[in-house]
């Protein structure tokens, strides 16, 4: 079976750290930064487990600030 690998980019300064992408992620890829904050003081989301991302775009669909871009490749 073909393996799917994905990756996301987060527009750090647009992120408000609402945690909804972390809740929506089915593979526990995303987390909020535990200490680091963006220019507006929010703990922004990042890929904590990049290898588990499948590029399903659920995080981007529920993101109220549209700060997530999703990429996906199918490895043959």
């Amino acid at each position: 079976m073909a393996k799917v690998q994905g990756a996301v980019t987060v527009d750090v300064n647009r992120c408000k750290g609402c945690d909804l992408c972390v809740v929506a992620c089915p593979t526990d890829t995303l987390l909020l930064q535990p200490k680091e904050v963006n220019d507006r003081g929010y703990h922004f989301a990042f890929m904590a487990n990049p290898e588990s991302c499948i590029g399903c775009a659920q995080c981007a669909t529920v993101c109220p600030d549209d700060c997530i871009e999703v990429y996906r490749v199918v490895l043959k």
Binding site: A57, E69, V70, Y71, R72
Partner: peptide, 12 residues
Amino acid sequence: EIIKPENKVHSR
């Protein structure tokens, strides 16, 4: 290698 314009599936 994954983050390339041709692999994009969701954007703003």
